[in-house]
Design a protein around this nucleic acid. Structure first.
Lengths: 383, 383
DNA sequence: TTGAAAGCGCTAACAC
DNA sequence: GTGTTAGCGCTTTCAA
């Protein structure tokens, strides 16, 4: 077998030399050949056309090391003629580095996450990285699958909104040396850089506002219990009640169990839950702690004949396109800042920095519109 | 240099044998070593631990070829012990196939596109593919960059909503042998599988409805001119006017020029445009042909003191979360079907099928709510 | 400044 | 059924 190898070793330089001496095929022929294959031109073909070695092509194109000006020009021309673009897969395999970041969000249809995604993408691009986005639909299996894919794809770093504070398995990434930043939610099973908003405080302020407006029976709708955001937002609610010496009524605390991005299901479920609370526990106000639950909640109001900001005061978490139009008082999260911070934390780790994990908490802003008031209106004046 | 090579050639089997004879390091040691490196375990390490060749590991894990049961078990155990997961980069480089699809959408914050993205991802997953999502913000440069990245990343296929019907450069992908499907918009520069909705017809029906409601001065707001959707939707509007023998008033046709995903800018611009139309051209109704333009338009109504479905009838393209609550009559696109169709067309080409390009047009559904009516209400009854 | 050669981690063709 | 080896396309020593 060594003989075999030797044979090839001797044969190879020979072939190359012969080809070179005989003159290379020329751009046109090479181009035709490539078009026919309908595959990417390789560095080898560029080298052949430019009459240099692949190493020189690599150097000329990357500018990593000095190359003779004429040679560089010839390489550039050849690469251009063939429409050459370096194969990232090969490059990344060779260099063991990647300029792609992964972002796994738990709901592509949630405006909060899409806003984060957009801003993150921008920050990544500003730093020369591309960002690929995956949607876990808050499903642990899907999340795990994407984690696996991105790790196997050798991304440089990962941003994640964990579907479950305990069960999310980011260790596949960590074990592969891929740094991970958690956004919007904490992860209890790993010590990660985490970017959050002041969930408890935000809801606290919302309840304060409602109480100031004269509300005493404040209902709250929170998402599934296995995320830290739900727990924190509920805590803010409770703290506020305590502050105002309002006894807690368990009937006013509603947990949605729907998970996953199915808008229709969530809408129906939410509508049912809120309808029940309104009918059974006569709240005078409502805090909705999750953007995707807003539509269903408002549908419940309509169904039960309640009027937003008149006989039922409402504050919601997350801003959305039509919030302004219908006067929805909203807790607005600084999505750009969150995303930027997350990407920056990530990139500093990608660059090799290993400080103890940070936890960055951003303040959210309570944008007061009309829905959070209790204007008693005479029935006749209502349309 | 051949000598050098020979030396290595001889040395290599020796080392391996020595190691093997001396007994492999054992899972614990190997694991420790890997943890310390904080890098992925490689197939080589698994092979070493299982006491077999890398080829056997590959075969045992992929199941591509029969492997002795004991050996397979040992391999499985070793791979599990080391937390081994095949490096996709290397695999894809070697096999020249990839199981990743790319989806480039023009606006992550547009519910239509996110709905498409979600459904596409699902269909891809059902077929054993993962989908990575990129956001071009309708920016040709960004789109091009992502096209480049995904091609260089060797994705198996691409779905795209072209930012510009003429300038989008999908040929980088096509030249690399990567099939491309266009969604939502046509691309004039290449012959692609394309999945669309009946834009013209949908708007036509919307105008019909408004005219039936008694409207005569129907204003229309369309997006930037360089997409085929804008043109088609405008055509639907014009056809409808012709049908009803209503003369066209150029003042009632508004083109938004804002492109890119900046929600705030678009909101402001739209609001300004609609305010002007209302003030200067007194429309009695309004067709908004793009989801992201809805919020700004409604803000303009509020500003000019108009009331939705009372003194101004409105129909919008694209459904959105709060549309139901505010009674917005909407042209709803079958996003799931669109996405599924697109992925299936793409995968059939990925699989090697090369029929002439398809164009699939889906019907949209006009969901009639209250905003499309003209109920004259006495001022006193309005709240 | 340039080229030859090795090698990233994997799979497949070929031997046995 | 298993091992050896070559090679995917690229970058990067090492030599010259």
């Amino acid at each position: 077998m060594i003989g075999n190898r030797l044979h090839k070793l001797r044969a190879l330089p020979g072939t190359v030399k012969t080809r070179r001496l005989r003159g290379h095929p020329g751009a046109a022929a090479l181009k035709r050949r490539i078009a026919k294959r309908s595959e990417m031109a390789t560095i080898k073909e560029v080298a052949q056309l430019a009459g240099v070695s692949t190493a020189t092509v690599s150097r000329a194109l990357s500018g990593a090391r000095p190359v003779n000006a004429d040679v560089a020009a010839r390489v550039l021309e050849a690469s251009h003629a063939l429409g050459y673009r370096p194969n990232r897969v090969a490059r990344s395999l060779r260099t063991q580095v990647s300029t792609t970041l992964g972002l796994i969000i738990s709901d592509v249809q949630n405006p909060f996450f899409t806003a984060v995604a957009r801003a993150a993408e921008r920050t990544a691009a500003d730093n020369g990285y591309s960002l690929v986005l995956c949607n876990s639909d808050d499903d642990l299996h899907l999340e795990r699958r994407y984690l696996d894919v991105l790790v196997a794809e050798q991304v440089a770093g990962l941003i994640l909104t964990p579907a479950d504070e305990k069960a999310s398995s980011v260790d596949v990434a960590l074990a592969a040396g891929i740094p991970v930043v958690s956004v919007d939610r904490r992860l209890r099973t790993a010590d990660l850089d985490t970017v959050l908003v002041d969930n408890a405080h935000a809801v606290h302020k919302a309840v304060d506002l409602l109480v100031r407006e004269g509300c005493r029976r404040v209902a709250v709708l929170v998402g599934p219990e296995h995320t830290t955001t739900a727990a924190e937002r509920l805590r803010g609610y409770r703290d506020a009640l305590t502050d105002h010496q309002i006894p807690e009524d368990p009937g006013l605390i509603v947990h949605s169990q729907v998970t996953g991005g199915d808008v229709a299901t969530l809408h129906k479920e939410t509508k049912g839950l809120i309808t029940e609370v309104i009918r059974e526990h006569s709240p005078d106000s409502l805090v909705i702690t999750n953007g995707p639950m807003i539509a269903g909640s408002l549908a419940a109001l309509a169904d039960t004949g309640r009027h937003l900001g008149e006989d039922l005061a409402v504050v919601v978490f997350d801003d959305m396109p039509l919030a302004e139009f219908i006067g929805l008082t909203s807790i607005v999260q600084p999505t750009e800042a969150i995303a930027q911070q997350a990407v920056e934390l990530l990139l500093s780790r990608v660059a090799g920095s290993t400080p103890p994990p940070h936890e960055v908490v951003f303040k959210s802003v309570l944008t007061i519109r009309t829905s959070s008031s209790l204007r008693r209106v005479s029935p006749g004046r209502r349309r």
